[in-house]
């Protein structure tokens, strides 16, 4: 069978891609590499980076997996703002050069790859699972039913893919090395709002720390950059409402 050529409307253009390079382990400080890559209207930033890797320099360090905004691996600064590379089309970014840098507020491992240890530690610290006395389902019992309204209280927060974009945009994360971060705080709310959960008191105690929830001053930048509509800022404010007794 003849190969089918991809549809094109003649809008293919060339884009200059600037990639920040560094390798702290080898003592190599930051510099920028420039590549010229082809761009169709549907070409994503990740496609462009992979084209640069394939055709120009295979040593470019980048982490990715699903290419469909589900795994949360390819977060990076794109033209100065945290975004998922696979979820950002070059055509959204205007005509100029596109600059990609490692996500801010995360330690750089190499080039665009950052370390997630702190995010995973913070996430784990808030006990991100249903805490319930009924650990085992005894014969004859049923799953805990929930009404659609009860599900709506937490379902948007359950969509978090742990990409870290929110932590990267947060102004408190930029200055406080121990702040728990919007990702983990929003997840604390996700479980606090779940009617099956019995761990509310303990979670509130964990986040009521000197580097905990009260360090959030509601800049809202986390929600601006979240690629999954989690709206962490909302979760955090609702959580504060619980702690202040308004909710």
């Amino acid at each position: 069978m003849a190969a089918v050529a991809p549809p094109t409307d003649g809008a293919r253009r060339s884009v200059t891609l600037r990639i920040r390079r560094s390798n702290p382990a080898a003592g190599q400080g930051p510099s920028y590499s420039e590549f010229t890559v082809g761009a169709e209207p549907w070409t994503t930033v990740l496609d462009a980076i992979l084209e640069a890797k394939r055709g120009h320099d295979h040593s470019v360090g980048v982490r990715y997996s699903c290419r469909q905004a589900t795994c949360g691996s390819c977060g990076m600064m794109v033209n100065g703002r945290p975004r998922l590379a696979c979820f950002t089309k070059l055509s959204e970014l205007g005509d100029g050069a596109v600059t990609v840098e490692p996500m801010q507020n995360f330690p750089v491992v190499r080039d665009l790859v950052v370390g997630f240890d702190r995010l995973f530690r913070s996430h784990h610290s808030i006990r991100p699972y249903i805490v319930s006395g009924e650990a085992d389902i005894a014969p004859g019992t049923r799953e805990t039913p929930q009404s659609p309204e009860e599900v709506e209280r937490y379902i948007q927060f359950a969509g978090c893919i742990k990409c870290g974009l929110c932590n990267s945009a947060c102004p408190t994360m930029a200055t406080d090395t121990q702040f728990i971060g919007p990702q983990s705080l929003a997840q604390a709310y996700r479980y606090v709002a779940d009617t099956r959960d019995r761990g509310k008191d303990e979670r509130l105690r964990i986040i009521d720390d000197s580097h905990g929830i009260w360090r959030c001053h509601y800049a809202g930048s986390c929600s601006k950059v979240c690629p999954k509509g989690v709206d962490p800022a909302m979760g955090i404010q609702l959580l504060k409402g619980h702690m202040l007794g308004f909710r």
Partner: peptide, 14 residues
């Protein structure tokens, strides 16, 4: 591996 601290700092916060 040694990592580069990439925090935005006061400049990014402000």
């Amino acid at each position: 591996a040694r990592e580069e601290d990439n925090r935005g700092g006061i400049r990014d916060m402000a």
